[in-house]
């Protein structure tokens, strides 16, 4: 129903412990953010894309579709970096340093988005969320987050069907109709979602619900080898960047 989510459940990396994937993705992300953008960002992007399209077998089309939104923001935002306001040249002028600055930030953010998508495309939330108690989050909160995750699909499904029905009665034919349709869609969803919660409550009571949503979380082995393998790419990127900077600063 949501492309990234659906892909995550069929990922060949699904059975890899989320901690290992987190280490790989987090490590690369830190490299992209903390190291000099040139050459760290292209290296990070190359490694993340190679991992995604190689062993993690993410569909390039799905990846591109998901990356489009954040890239659009990054590019629009970078337009602002090309100009300078209120300087010596007058009200608005092109900043001679602008292109370099925009390129740096665009490169860094694009690399970071690749890391984020690599994680999202390989880590189903049904496997991740129940484990959040292990990093110290209160179980009541984790239960609520997991419930939201389940219920959002049910709600999203009704939203799509209501929207199709509205479109059939020309509810999106012009902007006025559109406002009326989205408003009534929101109201219908609100009422429906809370009725659903009440029915779900009844359903859970039949199965002995007393306030705790305790469930069995599948064991996933956290193998040291996987952790080492996950730590390796970020370390290599860091080492390569350091070598480049060191050589560049050398004689």
């Amino acid at each position: 129903m949501l492309a990234i989510d659906a892909a995550a459940y069929t990922s060949p990396w699904r059975r890899v412990h989320p901690a290992a994937k987190g280490l790989l993705f987090g490590g690369l992300l830190v490299c992209a953010l903390a190291l000099p953008t040139w050459p760290a960002a292209p290296l990070v992007a190359a490694v993340a894309l190679a991992a995604a399209f190689g062993p993690a077998r993410v569909s390039p089309r799905a990846f591109a579709r998901a990356a489009w939104g954040p890239l659009l923001f990054i590019l629009t935002g970078s337009l602002a970096l090309l100009v300078t306001v209120g300087g010596a040249q007058g009200a608005v002028a092109l900043d001679p340093e602008g292109p370099a600055r925009a390129a740096e930030i665009t490169g860094r953010a694009a690399a970071a988005v690749c890391c984020q998508l690599l994680f999202a495309f390989t880590t189903p939330l049904a496997d991740l969320l129940p484990r959040l108690t292990r990093i110290g989050l209160p179980s009541a909160l984790v239960e609520v987050v997991a419930l939201i995750y389940r219920m959002l699909f049910v709600t999203l499904d009704s939203a799509r069907r209501v929207q199709t029905a509205q479109a059939g009665r020309l509810g999106y034919v012009d902007r006025r109709a559109w406002v009326r349709s989205v408003g009534s869609l929101g109201a219908a969803l609100f009422v429906r979602t809370f009725h659903r919660a009440q029915r779900m409550q009844r359903g859970l009571e039949c199965r002995g619900y007393t306030g705790e949503l305790t469930v069995l979380v599948d064991e996933l082995p956290l193998r040291p080898a996987a952790l080492i393998a996950a730590a390796l790419p970020p370390l290599l990127v860091a080492a390569a960047t350091a070598a480049y900077v060191f050589i560049g600063a050398g004689p």
Partner: peptide, 18 residues
């Protein structure tokens, strides 16, 4: 708990509407 779940799901879907 279920009502909060409903509220959260509603917020997510609302922000996904076009």
């Amino acid at each position: 708990k279920l009502l909060v779940g409903a509220a959260g799901a509603f917020c997510f879907v609302l922000s996904a509407l076009k």
